[in-house]
């Protein structure tokens, strides 16, 4: 069972049935199920989520990208700070990045107020945090490799040589 092919396929469509995955990979269903279990057990696959175009959902949904600068000391490293930030359910994504700032955080909430409150009351006060810059997401055009436009119609001839 080639796990890389299995991952490629899941990244395209994680909702495919085990049977359909098996057909596409030319493997048998038991082998696919076993490989999936293994990927999950090893922590390679951490979950399966829908890619949502929030503009098309009636409920208010606000996202912001937050740049965070920190100052480390002898007792505290990136790891410790990250663990503390990651625990907040409002934090959807947390990454240590190279460049002008240290952490990149994606925060989700129901209103701009929620999100800015969260940043000023939960993130900024962390002793090691020296600076935050919050960017609210105004529009999104592509998520997880999927374009959020109206898509292109298939305008090919229905039957052609």
């Amino acid at each position: 069972m080639d796990k890389r092919s299995l991952l490629d396929l899941l990244r395209r469509d994680a909702r495919e049935s085990v049977d359909d995955i098996a057909r596409q990979l030319g493997a048998d269903a038991e082998a696919v199920a076993a490989a999936l279990d293994e990927l999950e057990a090893d922590g390679v696959v951490r979950g399966y989520q829908a890619v949502v175009d929030w503009d098309r959902v009636a409920d208010e949904h606000v996202r912001a990208q937050v740049e965070v600068d920190v100052e480390l000391d002898r007792e505290t490293g990136y790891e410790e700070i990250a663990t503390r930030i990651a625990r907040f359910p409002e934090v959807a994504t947390l990454r240590l990045v190279s460049g002008d700032y240290d952490f990149f955080i994606e925060v989700e909430g129901e209103s701009m107020h929620d999100v800015s409150n969260f940043v000023s009351e939960r993130i900024a006060p962390i002793p090691e945090v020296t600076k935050t810059v919050t960017h609210f997401v105004m529009d999104s055009y592509k998520e997880e490799g999927i374009e959020l436009g109206d898509g292109d119609d298939d305008d090919r001839l229905s039957v052609s040589p």
Partner: peptide, 13 residues
């Protein structure tokens, strides 16, 4: 609402 498996060209752009 025909689904066509009769097309002799790629479905990609």
């Amino acid at each position: 609402d025909v689904i066509s498996l009769g097309v002799g060209e790629p479905d990609f752009s």
